[in-house]
Deep mutational scan, measured.
Amino acid sequence: MTTFKLIINGKTLKGEITIEAVDAAEAEKIFKQYANDNGIDGEWTYDDATKTDTVTE
Rank of each mutant, 00 (worst) to 15 (best):
M1N: 07
M1C: 14
M1T: 12
M1Q: 06
M1F: 11
T2K: 11
T2F: 13
T2E: 07
T2V: 12
T2G: 06
T2D: 04
T3K: 10
T3L: 11
T3R: 08
T3A: 05
T3W: 11
T3H: 05
F4G: 03
F4C: 09
F4L: 02
F4I: 04
F4M: 00
F4S: 01
F4V: 05
F4D: 02
K5W: 07
K5R: 09
K5N: 03
K5D: 02
K5C: 15
K5E: 03
K5G: 01
K5F: 12
L6S: 00
L6D: 03
L6G: 01
L6R: 00
L6H: 00
L6V: 08
L6A: 01
L6M: 06
L6C: 12
I7K: 04
I7Q: 02
I7L: 04
I7M: 03
I7W: 04
I7D: 01
I8L: 08
I8E: 00
I8T: 00
I8C: 13
I8Q: 00
I8S: 00
I8R: 00
I8W: 14
I8A: 00
N9Y: 09
N9D: 10
N9E: 07
N9T: 05
N9K: 08
N9M: 08
G10W: 11
G10R: 01
G10H: 06
G10A: 06
G10I: 13
G10L: 14
G10E: 01
K11D: 09
K11S: 12
K11G: 09
K11Q: 13
K11W: 13
K11I: 15
K11M: 13
K11C: 15
T12Q: 10
T12A: 07
T12D: 10
T12H: 14
T12S: 08
T12M: 08
T12Y: 14
L13F: 15
L13E: 08
L13S: 10
L13P: 02
L13M: 13
K14C: 15
K14V: 10
K14P: 04
K14E: 07
K14I: 10
K14H: 09
K14G: 04
K14W: 13
G15F: 15
G15C: 15
G15Q: 14
G15S: 11
G15T: 13
G15Y: 15
G15W: 15
G15R: 11
G15E: 11
G15I: 15
E16I: 13
E16L: 07
E16Q: 12
E16P: 02
E16M: 11
I17G: 00
I17C: 15
I17F: 11
I17V: 07
I17R: 00
I17Y: 10
I17S: 00
I17W: 11
I17H: 01
I17L: 12
T18R: 07
T18M: 10
T18W: 14
T18I: 12
T18Y: 14
I19L: 08
I19C: 15
I19M: 02
I19S: 00
I19Q: 00
I19E: 00
I19P: 00
E20N: 08
E20R: 11
E20Q: 13
E20W: 14
E20G: 05
A21V: 07
A21T: 03
A21P: 01
A21E: 02
A21M: 05
V22K: 12
V22I: 12
V22W: 13
V22E: 07
V22N: 09
V22H: 12
V22C: 14
D23V: 06
D23W: 10
D23N: 12
D23H: 03
D23Y: 08
D23L: 02
A24P: 09
A24S: 06
A24W: 15
A24T: 03
A25C: 15
A25T: 09
A25H: 09
A25L: 11
E26S: 11
E26T: 12
E26K: 01
A27W: 03
A27S: 01
A27H: 00
A27K: 03
A27R: 00
A27M: 04
A27F: 03
A27D: 00
E28T: 10
E28R: 15
E28Y: 13
E28W: 13
E28Q: 14
E28A: 11
K29S: 07
K29L: 07
K29Y: 05
K29D: 03
K29P: 00
K29T: 08
K29C: 14
K29Q: 10
K29M: 09
I30F: 14
I30D: 00
I30Q: 02
I30Y: 13
I30N: 01
I30A: 04
F31W: 04
F31V: 01
F31G: 01
F31D: 00
F31C: 05
F31T: 01
F31Y: 01
K32R: 14
K32L: 08
K32T: 03
K32S: 05
K32N: 06
Q33I: 06
Q33H: 04
Q33Y: 04
Q33K: 12
Y34G: 01
Y34V: 02
Y34I: 09
Y34C: 08
Y34L: 07
Y34D: 04
A35I: 13
A35V: 12
A35N: 01
N36G: 04
N36H: 14
N36D: 12
N36F: 15
N36S: 14
N36V: 14
N36Y: 14
D37G: 02
D37W: 05
D37N: 06
D37K: 07
D37C: 13
D37H: 04
D37M: 11
D37S: 08
D37V: 08
D37L: 09
N38R: 11
N38E: 06
N38W: 14
N38G: 04
N38A: 13
N38Y: 12
G39H: 08
G39V: 03
G39K: 05
G39C: 11
G39N: 10
G39D: 07
G39M: 04
I40R: 00
I40Q: 02
D41L: 11
D41E: 12
D41P: 02
D41Q: 11
D41H: 14
D41M: 13
D41R: 13
G42L: 08
G42F: 08
G42R: 03
G42K: 04
G42H: 07
G42D: 04
G42I: 07
G42Q: 04
E43R: 07
E43K: 09
E43G: 03
E43H: 11
W44I: 03
W44S: 02
W44C: 09
W44Q: 01
W44T: 06
W44K: 01
W44E: 02
T45C: 14
T45E: 10
T45Y: 11
T45L: 09
T45P: 03
Y46K: 03
Y46Q: 01
Y46D: 01
D47P: 05
D47E: 11
D47Y: 07
D47Q: 07
D47K: 05
D47T: 09
D47G: 04
D48G: 05
D48H: 11
D48S: 10
D48K: 08
D48P: 14
D48L: 12
D48N: 09
D48A: 12
D48M: 09
A49V: 11
A49I: 11
A49H: 07
A49T: 10
A49R: 09
A49P: 07
T50I: 07
T50L: 10
T50M: 09
T50P: 04
T50H: 06
K51W: 09
K51F: 11
K51L: 10
K51S: 05
K51G: 08
K51Y: 08
K51A: 08
T52F: 06
T52E: 05
T52H: 05
T52G: 04
T52M: 03
T52A: 06
T52R: 08
T52W: 06
D53E: 15
D53Y: 15
D53G: 15
D53H: 15
D53M: 15
D53A: 15
T54A: 04
T54G: 05
T54D: 04
T54S: 09
T54V: 08
T54H: 07
V55S: 07
V55H: 04
V55F: 06
V55P: 08
V55R: 03
V55K: 04
V55T: 04
V55G: 04
T56Y: 08
T56H: 08
T56S: 08
T56L: 05
E57S: 06
E57H: 06
E57F: 06
E57M: 10
E57A: 07
